[in-house]
Design a protein around this nucleic acid. Structure first.
Length: 803
RNA sequence: GCGAGUGUGGUGGAAUAGGCAGACACAGCAGACUUAAAAUCUGCCGGGAAACCAUGUGGGUUCGAGUCCCACCAUUCGCACCA
């Protein structure tokens, strides 16, 4: 009898052996075939690792371990995305420096990750808050700035009127400050912006060259939101000023009975002398400032608005004067901040027209506009539309755009929903923006590269100023500097970068993390990039994934990297929910602490359960008893050693073993980890029906199980007398000839319902199968008195169609 | 509201290209071993006496639908300053 399975003893032992052997470190031999596996690096929160992190980590650890066994030079790195709000807020509360908080949290994360036995290359660990790292984040920003991709613009921020600080969207709950309950308003500030919109088309087009799962591609495309239409100029009945609108439906212009502009639209102020109800407008504008874009664009809400008095617009198609309204459902950030309202064919315009009694003119026939807007009208015919009458919607679109262009009243236009990236934060714990404003040069001047990294100044107070400015405004000595170009007095930028900055290029740094000459050596980038397989959460699809693709493309244009895309393949894991099926959170009290459970069942069983619990790409509720079931399975695997006898793989077990090799190999590649593990469980169940198991048979089980639960497999492999550690083993190939079955079982259906089963030798002719099926006693009885119309034989099914 | 997913036993899930629904587990029940418990092992485990009925609901396509199409309902993720 072998000793009891004791993970507490063998897991640290094997972790030490792996570390001493440096077996998971990527080699700087750029001639070998390579594989770069990446998972999103964690934000080191004070709560430590939760059971969601190991899901993504274990998955790519399994794939990385398999790739090494397949002979690849594997890069599987880990690091920390450590700038950000929670650490800063904790610092404000406790007075403890965010750097110290970060160090403590990182140490905790590292310890927890190491305990799980992931095959990370720890020699390449990075941390975005490390000056040797953010030096290059700042360097990239300067390249973007020099390229004209960074600019300043006025953008609204959330501002708490009681704390007097700018708030993140997350900190605004129901229009109130999440910390003090004070009223939140939108306040306009000048902020740094990055021109991601300049890359909108390429970010869509290049999705064709990468292997991202479909739902990720679709969400990125929809987020970028390309739409084709026209920009149309509406003249006013007063002065030379015009209003531009973007519309995807220029064909419906004859039905435009009024216009709506955003309450913030600049036309209002420039025409304030002719608008007679400015008081109402200002009051409405103040109300709108308290709502988020999200609340404003909600379709179901009741429409509100104010008509501008004293000014009208002229519909360029009809020549008629139409009223102009302001309403909060029109956003300044999309299109031109103004729309032509066609109530007959747009739902929101329809609701608005009904609420304010505006005329509704049908211009595409086929709907019932008495009852509702006729929106999906692509099959309709144009009516009440002058020269467009009788045309289809598609024809009318083309004809209208041509007419507008010929008459100088509009142009064909592609519009994107994607907006430029607001890159400023009025906070402390982030990368300082390496620019100074020179009084003399009257412009923003970049710091020379030899002055990077620009360090954060030491401040007493991490709280933003009462005016909502960054805490850096308190660092007077740091702010006041000289202009690198003219030497005159200059002031540093006090806003910092958003936490997304560091994570937009971290996969590059892993290629060569200790380089202080460049962000990474050119040959290392050329060898390792693109990342071969990147796994992460769906929640990062539209922001992080898009931001990093944008930075990568900008750096590609600058000649820093040679690949147009950073990630070859992107997959996504489902979120781990609490035991009650709800999202895990402190406030719900359903957070599972992995440390306690690992003490009880060991890291190997924990890893296995993370993969076995359900479909990898779906959200799954946690089950502690399910995790304990995986420990029971490993106990059973361990006890197989009691049945082990010397010998190779026996003929009668070839089919079992080779079909399992095939199943596990293919399932890992498709991220069907749950069924790969189920196949291994079946194999073990089979072993237990036998008198004994040979060592080579058991060894094969250990090889296949080792990527999932590596410690127990290494230990058993050694106890069985195998001297090559599993990490240095070769991944097995299956033998097709061993998969062939001698006889095949068929389900016999009558009119599509299974009524009987027959077994026949492999290779039996269809005519013979048909005969056997019809002669079957059960079948005979059931089709008695019926006429057999036809018999369909496909795969393992014989379907008799009888009437 | 907009965009993207998901819906199968008491529970998590399985079903590769439209072909035998419920693999593999969890929980539960019964039994063996034990003074007893734990651990372990064995058996049962969607409903129904059966015919049959069952993959969120209602339609459709097909010899055949969990899988494809249409409509609806429920639910999860994201919505640009959380990471």
């Amino acid at each position: 009898m072998v000793d009891r399975y004791n993970p507490a003893e063998i897991e640290p032992k094997w972790q030490k052996i792996w570390e001493d052997a440096h077996c998971f470190e990527a080699k700087n031999d750029f001639t070998q075939k390579k594989f770069y596996a990446l998972i999103e690096f964690p934000y080191p929160s004070g709560a430590g690792l939760h059971v969601g992190h190991p899901r993504s980590n274990t998955a790519l650890d399994i794939i990385s371990r398999k790739r090494r066994m397949e002979g690849y030079n594997v890069l599987f790195p880990m690091g920390y995305d450590a700038f950000g709000l929670p650490t800063e807020n904790y610092a404000i509360k406790t007075g403890c420096h965010p750097r110290v908080v970060t160090e403590t949290n990182v140490a905790k994360f590292r310890e927890q990750l190491k305990r799980l036995g992931f095959s990370f290359d720890w020699s390449r660990e990075i941390n975005t808050t490390d000056p040797s790292y953010f030096k290059w984040t700042q360097w990239i920003f300067l390249q973007l700035f020099k390229r004209g991709l960074a600019y300043k613009a006025e953008m609204p921020i959330n501002f708490c009127t009681s704390c007097k600080v700018g708030l993140a969207n997350e900190e605004v709950v129901d229009g109130k400050c999440d910390r003090c309950g004070g009223e939140v308003v939108r306040k306009v500030k000048t902020q740094w912006m990055l021109k991601i919109t300049a890359y909108a088309q390429r970010l869509i087009d290049n999705l064709d060259m990468v292997d991202f799962i479909d739902k990720v591609k679709t969400q990125q495309r929809n987020w970028i939101g390309r739409s084709e239409g026209a920009e149309i100029i509406f003249k006013l009945n007063h002065g030379d000023l015009t209003l531009k609108v973007f519309t995807t439906r220029p064909d419906t212009i004859f039905g435009a009975t009024y216009m709506v502009i955003s309450p913030e639209h600049p036309m209002i102020d420039s025409k304030s002398d002719v608008i007679s109800n400015m008081d109402d407008i200002i009051a409405y504008r103040e109300k709108a400032a308290k709502k988020s874009d999200f609340e404003r664009s909600e379709l179901s809400k009741e429409k509100t608005g104010v008509m501008l008095k004293g000014i009208m617009a002229i519909n360029p198609a009809t020549g008629l004067e139409i009223p102009i309204w302001i309403s909060d459902y029109v956003l300044m950030g999309y299109g031109t901040g103004a729309i032509m309202a066609v109530p007959a064919h747009d739902m929101r315009d329809y609701d608005f027209a009904k609420a304010f009694d505006m005329p509704i003119v049908e211009v595409v026939s086929g709907g019932n506009i008495e009852r509702e807007a006729f929106v999906e009208c692509s099959t309709g015919t144009l009516v009440n539309s002058g020269f467009l009458n009788g045309l289809s919607v598609d024809e009318a679109k083309k004809a209208m755009i041509n007419w507008l262009e010929e008459n100088g009243l509009g142009t064909r236009k592609v519009n994107f929903k994607l907006r430029d990236w607001v890159f400023s934060r009025q906070r402390y714990w982030g990368e300082p923006i390496p620019l100074v404003y020179c009084e003399h040069c009257k412009r923003w001047v970049p710091l020379p590269e030899d002055q990077l990294p620009l360090m954060l100044p030491e401040v007493q107070e991490f709280k933003p100023s009462d005016m909502g400015e960054s805490p850096l405004v308190h660092a007077t000595e740091w702010i006041n500097t000289t202009c690198p170009e003219c030497g005159g007095p200059a002031k540093r930028e006090t806003d910092i970068m958003p936490q997304w900055a560091g994570s937009s290029w971290y996969y590059m740094r892993y290629c060569d993390p200790h380089n202080d000459e460049r962000l990474a050596a050119r040959e290392a980038l050329n060898y390792w990039l693109p990342v071969d397989w990147y796994n992460g959460g769906m929640e990062h699809t539209t922001l992080h994934l898009l931001y990093s693709r944008f930075w990568h493309k900008a750096l590609y244009d600058l000649g820093v990297v040679d690949t147009p895309e950073p990630y070859l393949k992107r997959t996504s894991h489902g979120m781990v929910l609490g035991e009650n099926g709800e999202k895990m959170s402190k406030s719900r009290g359903n957070v599972v602490n992995p440390d306690v459970l690992i003490d009880e069942i060991g890291a190997d069983a924990f890893r296995m359960y993370e993969m076995f619990m359900g479909a990898f790409d779906q959200p799954i509720p946690w089950s502690t008893s399910g995790a304990k079931g995986c420990r029971r399975f490993l106990d059973r695997v361990w006890r197989l050693m009691d049945m082990a006898v010397d010998g190779g793989i026996r003929d009668q077990n070839k089919h079992l073993i080779h079909s399992t090799i095939k199943k596990v190999s293919e399932d890992i590649e498709r991220m069907k980890f749950n069924t790969a593990i189920a196949a291994l469980m079946s194999m073990v169940n089979e072993f237990y029906t036998m008198e004994s198991v040979t060592k080579d048979e058991l060894h094969m089980l250990l090889v296949l199980l080792s990527p999932v639960s590596p410690h127990i497999c290494e230990e058993m492999n050694r106890l069985l007398g195998y001297t090559t550690p599993l990490y240095a083993e070769t991944w097995p190939a299956w033998d097709e000839s061993a998969l062939v079955e001698a006889s095949i079982e068929y389900g016999v259906q009558i009119n599509g319902k299974v009524k009987a089963r027959i077994t026949a030798p492999a290779g039996t002719e269809n005519s013979e199968l048909e005969h056997i099926a019809i002669e079957n006693a059960d079948v005979k009885r059931l089709i008695e008195g019926l006429t057999v119309r036809k018999v369909i034989i496909v795969k393992n099914i014989i379907n008799i169609v009888a009437k």
